[in-house]
Design a protein around this nucleic acid. Sequence first.
DNA 1: TTTT
DNA 2: TTTT
Lengths: 176, 176, 176, 176
Amino acid sequence: MSVNKVILVGRLGRDPETRYMPSGDAVTNFSIATDEQWRDRNGERQTRTEWHNITLFGKLGEIASQYLRKGSQVFIEGRIQSRKYSGKDGIERTAYDIIGSEMKMLGSRNDTGAAGGSYDQMGGGADYAQGGNFSQGGYDAAPAASSPPPAAPRRQAPRPAPAPAPIDDIDDDIPF
Amino acid sequence: MSVNKVILVGRLGRDPETRYMPSGDAVTNFSIATDEQWRDRNGERQTRTEWHNITLFGKLGEIASQYLRKGSQVFIEGRIQSRKYSGKDGIERTAYDIIGSEMKMLGSRNDTGAAGGSYDQMGGGADYAQGGNFSQGGYDAAPAASSPPPAAPRRQAPRPAPAPAPIDDIDDDIPF
Amino acid sequence: MSVNKVILVGRLGRDPETRYMPSGDAVTNFSIATDEQWRDRNGERQTRTEWHNITLFGKLGEIASQYLRKGSQVFIEGRIQSRKYSGKDGIERTAYDIIGSEMKMLGSRNDTGAAGGSYDQMGGGADYAQGGNFSQGGYDAAPAASSPPPAAPRRQAPRPAPAPAPIDDIDDDIPF
Amino acid sequence: MSVNKVILVGRLGRDPETRYMPSGDAVTNFSIATDEQWRDRNGERQTRTEWHNITLFGKLGEIASQYLRKGSQVFIEGRIQSRKYSGKDGIERTAYDIIGSEMKMLGSRNDTGAAGGSYDQMGGGADYAQGGNFSQGGYDAAPAASSPPPAAPRRQAPRPAPAPAPIDDIDDDIPF
DNA sequence: TTTT
DNA sequence: TTTT
């Protein structure tokens, strides 16, 4: 028995990137920033930005890739998962990822962070939840990617990637 | 605008440790485990344990130190915060901590994970919320500890530590 | 785009009750208490108990019925949903339910709140997540029950109920 | 020991309203909508809107009143609290409110849901957390308002209300 | 009563 | 690397 839950609202530092596993499974990554502001003991305003590596599997990630862009504001629900990797210096490190199970695009309307035309199709803000096969564990479904961002950027899959699912293909799964 | 929220329920891998800053501020650390179980493609049961480094400031941490023990089940609410540190190999790494703002002791009653006598005084489970001064940021209040657990254990403060606040001292702040 | 999320940890006021819809779908209900304590302006300790009506559909509810008992401590994640009903006085009222999508049994080990023998099979605490067909909406799957607890107790289904799924039947879906 | 936590993202149905208690404490109310969409058994798209009554005490509410408007998208974190009231028909009913402890204005930038000039001062999105005195309980601090929305709209305080805190007054408490 |  |  345990609970491992993360809820984030932040903006993407870059466009999402989707890779495809040999199995054909999609893995999408992007980072979002969250900010804290407080006053220190001297009354000085301090600020601190935290960057979170987000990993979305399957269609959830493909939709993120389609509709989210650098600067987009997004709600992510997921879990914390650590991952060991070796950088090019050969040193082993541990990165942590947020494995997302839900994503909601925020802002909408005339928010410039959103993708243009197809965004309208999304009805100006979209929710999507992780489907069944990836939901438990996900570890098996997410074979050790070579390296994490920012200290350890993931390599893009060099193999010919299957085309992203057409919008019609996933229509049934988008709850709107 | 952003949200950085973590909710964990898990068990402590060890007793909490409280250090005192030169300012007198208490910093308490412990790790809790969360587990995932799923079936892989071959129908084999897989399990994975994630260890989360928890940091609690001030009285919240002192109460954790008083009442939580290795094996205690606890609810933690907080935020993700990364921290750079250099191990004894001189290599810089990044650890992530959960800076807790709320803690609830779970199980209670006859659960062996709880501390003995004084636990009864707690009425079989206790809640405590982070007070004001540490709540925003907390960065200023948490000068870079040298290293995180388990990959990067924090060093204990070598200086004579003030005695933990007596139960009566904090009585007013425990909401029961 | 919206988020409607509830996270509760509390204890059951009574054993869960499972009804079966004409379609065969199971609907399980129980209430859990959460408590707040605070000091009023006069420094007097105040306490307040809130009772939450929980509704779990399908197997998630059947497992709750099997393993949870009055006094059990449970973690529930779900959403708020209001429901109109007419009491026996003919007056229409609105109740609110928490439609659970995840349940985790807390405490475990020697906690008396847990069900006996089969509880061991659960490995001392169990997680279960709502399957696919009920997850979106659920409204359609939850035809207006007549009345909520405690102010508006639901009526039990009078029809012969199918036996609860045997543990083996659901084994595949329990993540352990 | 218990947890009663709600996380909502939705849009305001109307401008917030702030009343002042005889004690001078501010109580701010508004409703936000969350939506669900799903497909029923016949494959028909269904939608359902849930309206949540939000109550914010003190400065948190005053800031909401200043910056949120009908249509604004907002993140609210809080707890569920039920409240008995008697409508003009003399019948007692129970309403539920979300007592907010945190609020984050979403969207920002060129989102039309935001208040104009002073919004810029907020830096395009603002976070605010409930201060100390209202945080525990809040019940004592929130004397039974006469009636809830929508079935039971609260009456506005008839007494001369103190002016909302000027922006400079609260500057210290806004974390930016 | 919001929004798309 | 976002945003204000």
